[in-house]
Amino acid sequence: MFSYRHAFHAGNHADVLKHVVLLATLRHLMHKEAGLTLIDTHAGAGLYRLDSDFTDKGDEARDGIVKLMGALRPASGQPAASAAAVDDYLDLIAGFNPSGQLRVYPGSPFVVHSTLRAASRDRLRLYELHPTDSRTLSANIAQLEAGRTVSVHREDGFAALRPLLPPPPGPGGSRRAMVLIDPSYEIKSDYHKVSACIQESLKRFPTGCYLVWYPVIPRPEAHDLPRRLRTLANQSQRPWLHATLAIGQDPSHGPDDRPGLTASGMFVINPPYTLKAQLQEALPVLLNMLGRGRGQGQTLESAG
């Protein structure tokens, strides 16, 4: 049950897509003065060393953030053409690596925390069930000295989300929340849990902003999930956006090599109205920088 460790995959192409979308969404949500309840249902350890034993085993960051940073923030020479959302994301990563050496990768909890506003009533709720990652997450968050602004819970994020919605009203009476759902999907039941969680959440709090990450793999449940999410959003008459990024097969791998994860998607319900235009600009940049072989591509759909 606890075999999945995000440290093996930190900074890969799926993280790049997820965090570009997450950061662009957060930037827009922070424009309104009213406080936000921010919930990460599967928070992981929060921070990752790109030179650790975990990341060295998979070396997935090499085809993700390392490749992207090398092309768009080269130590010397002219950087390639970029996009505003990608530049903002790279600025964030660079802030965690002040020496200029890419050694630390911030997971979603730290991406979200970086956008919290001083003297605001934003609250970040982090859930992680893996015992080791939960302890590491707590230790990493403790270094922020964020007080009650950020809380860490060793709980099942699916179950924990229900009593949090609708969120408590802010000083002006408004209720605002953003929820990120990105389980490992190593267990097939995760796909059903995600759709059931979104269905329940839309009933309890239909105006919340919900972000779902999922792997694009040859499994029926993986292909059905975005279709199910689209149906749920349409039934609730809520706008949605669906983005995918496929970097393609590694041309250095032989026909018998396992390809690993080559594509992933982000499905956003109640997306900021600015997000589509930002991704129309950002996705081609990511594909141009990270695409590596047969099967590469990107898609962007939306409604509402």
Results as ranks from 00 to 15, higher is better:
residue 302 S to Y: 15
residue 208 G to W: 00
residue 281 E to H: 08
residue 123 R to F: 07
residue 135 R to S: 11
residue 237 Q to V: 08
residue 219 R to P: 04
residue 274 T to G: 05
residue 40 D to L: 05
residue 5 R to K: 10
residue 285 V to M: 07
residue 90 L to W: 02
residue 4 Y to F: 14
residue 233 A to G: 13
residue 123 R to C: 03
residue 221 E to Y: 04
residue 188 K to A: 15
residue 103 R to L: 14
residue 10 A to P: 09
residue 184 S to D: 05
residue 54 F to R: 04
residue 179 V to R: 00
residue 265 G to E: 02
residue 30 M to V: 06
residue 291 G to I: 04
residue 147 G to S: 11
residue 73 R to H: 11
residue 104 V to F: 05
residue 205 F to K: 00
residue 97 N to P: 12
residue 55 T to W: 00
residue 232 L to V: 09
residue 24 A to D: 08
residue 150 V to I: 15
residue 158 F to P: 03
residue 18 K to D: 09
residue 126 L to P: 01
residue 66 V to W: 08
residue 130 H to T: 07
residue 221 E to C: 05
residue 157 G to R: 01
residue 263 A to R: 00
residue 69 M to T: 15
residue 144 L to M: 07
residue 207 T to L: 12
residue 28 H to V: 10
residue 277 A to E: 12
residue 264 S to A: 14
residue 181 I to L: 12
residue 78 Q to H: 10
residue 257 D to Q: 08
residue 239 P to I: 07
residue 156 D to R: 05
residue 54 F to G: 00
residue 240 W to P: 00
residue 64 G to C: 11
residue 98 P to L: 13
residue 67 K to V: 02
residue 254 G to S: 09
residue 80 A to R: 15
residue 284 P to W: 09
residue 130 H to W: 13
residue 18 K to R: 14
residue 238 R to L: 10
residue 277 A to S: 14
residue 13 H to W: 03
residue 276 K to H: 14
residue 219 R to K: 12
residue 255 P to V: 11
residue 210 Y to P: 00
residue 115 T to N: 04
residue 58 G to T: 15
residue 231 T to K: 13
residue 213 W to G: 00
residue 35 G to M: 06
residue 180 L to R: 02
residue 161 L to C: 08
residue 13 H to V: 07
residue 245 L to G: 01
residue 262 T to L: 13
residue 39 I to E: 00
residue 251 P to F: 10
residue 9 H to P: 03
residue 222 A to S: 15
residue 47 L to S: 01
residue 38 L to R: 01
residue 189 S to L: 03
residue 130 H to Q: 13
residue 271 P to Q: 04
residue 32 K to L: 04
residue 201 S to T: 12
residue 292 R to N: 06
residue 252 S to T: 15
residue 2 F to N: 15
residue 88 D to V: 07
residue 283 L to Y: 01
residue 190 D to C: 13
residue 52 S to P: 04
residue 39 I to R: 00
residue 199 Q to N: 14
residue 20 V to P: 00
residue 207 T to I: 06
residue 250 D to R: 04
residue 92 L to H: 12
residue 278 Q to C: 01
residue 31 H to R: 15
residue 32 K to R: 15
residue 124 L to I: 04
residue 299 T to W: 06
residue 294 R to G: 06
residue 183 P to K: 03
residue 254 G to L: 05
residue 124 L to Y: 02
residue 132 T to G: 07
residue 224 D to A: 15
residue 261 L to W: 09
residue 7 A to S: 13
residue 152 V to P: 04
residue 93 I to V: 15
residue 39 I to C: 04
residue 243 A to S: 13
